[in-house]
Design a protein around this nucleic acid. Structure first.
Length: 270
DNA sequence: ATATGCACCTGTGTGC
DNA sequence: TGCACACAGGTGCATA
């Protein structure tokens, strides 16, 4: 479900409320996530304080006071919510961290594509292949030339490659390609300099705007306080097949790229 | 090495 | 109303 803007929104809404909180109890109701939750998960968390929250791509890293890290990935349908302790668990609330001051941090994930792990940061192999943050880095034309060099795959697939651009998923790949006026199927290596410059600007602009608006709430995404995002109101192409392009009125097209729905305006994107 | 297809899950919407 | 099917914000592994 969540891409960079949604994960960043959760991080920002969570941190001021749980900074320094002590984890008093750990309740795991379902260990079968993308990978099974390890047997020592509870013991490694109990009694720790939350010393920081960092984001790497779509991963959240809760820094603990013993130099370990709680790694969380929300997959397609994962949520993190801060609730009053004692509120009854719903059917898909797999992990509950009871905090001090009568609160609980709850992980909810119907499809169970999410991930939760505790370890030293160098033990968390998932992080080894996470690429560079599209917002944190300065993307120069030289950087882009290296990235697209001899890459014959569609540019949309390159944008969604987490080893390259950490955090971009299906919604924002579609939206930034529209903003840049580039068709999703174009080969990465075939993009010309002005197109790369437009794409670099669109990447930053789309993601920053989405973060400002709290991400996209398609069906049930909420931040840690239960508030929805509002970027979906501004989607130009995502999930708008057949609807008129906001710029030229041409119906938005839907195609499949590597099995993922892909949307574009045939007139505005070349 | 690189690119695609499919599997992993549950929930929801659509059409018959 | 019920049923079958397609599809959903992601990732990883097997296969060409």
């Amino acid at each position: 479900m969540p891409e960079l803007p949604e994960v960043e929104t959760i991080r920002r809404s969570l941190w001021p409320r749980i900074a320094g909180a002590r984890i008093q109890r750990v309740i795991v109701r379902e260990r079968r996530l993308r990978r099974p939750i390890a047997a020592d998960f509870e013991a490694r968390l109990k009694g720790r304080r939350i010393a920081g929250i960092e984001r790497r791509g779509k991963y959240l890293l809760f820094q603990l006071d013993d130099r370990h890290v709680l790694l969380v990935h929300l997959g397609m349908s994962g949520h993190l919510a801060l609730k009053p302790a004692g509120v009854r668990d719903g059917p898909h609330e797999h992990v509950r961290l009871t905090l001090d001051r009568h609160r609980a941090l709850v992980f909810h994930d119907p499809r169970r594509f999410g991930l939760m792990r505790v370890g030293r940061i160098d033990e968390l192999i998932e992080l080894h292949s996470v690429g560079r943050d599209p917002l944190a880095e300065c993307w120069t034309p030289d950087t882009w030339r290296v990235l697209v060099h001899q890459r014959r795959l569609p540019i949309k697939n390159l944008l969604m490659d987490q080893r390259v651009f950490a955090g971009i998923g299906n919604i924002y790949a579609n939206e930034m390609l529209y903003a840049a006026g580039i068709r999703p199927r174009r080969r990465a290596s075939g993009l010309r300099q002005p197109e790369l410059v437009r794409l670099a600007g669109a990447m930053r602009h789309v993601l920053e705007k989405a973060v400002r608006l709290g991400g996209s709430s398609i069906s049930d995404y909420r931040d840690a306080d239960g508030k929805p995002g509002f970027f979906q109101i501004h989607h130009a192409v995502y999930d708008r097949a057949g609807e008129p392009c906001r710029r030229c009125g041409t119906p938005i097209r839907r195609i499949l790229l590597s099995g993922r729905s892909t949307f574009y305006c045939p007139r505005c994107q070349r």
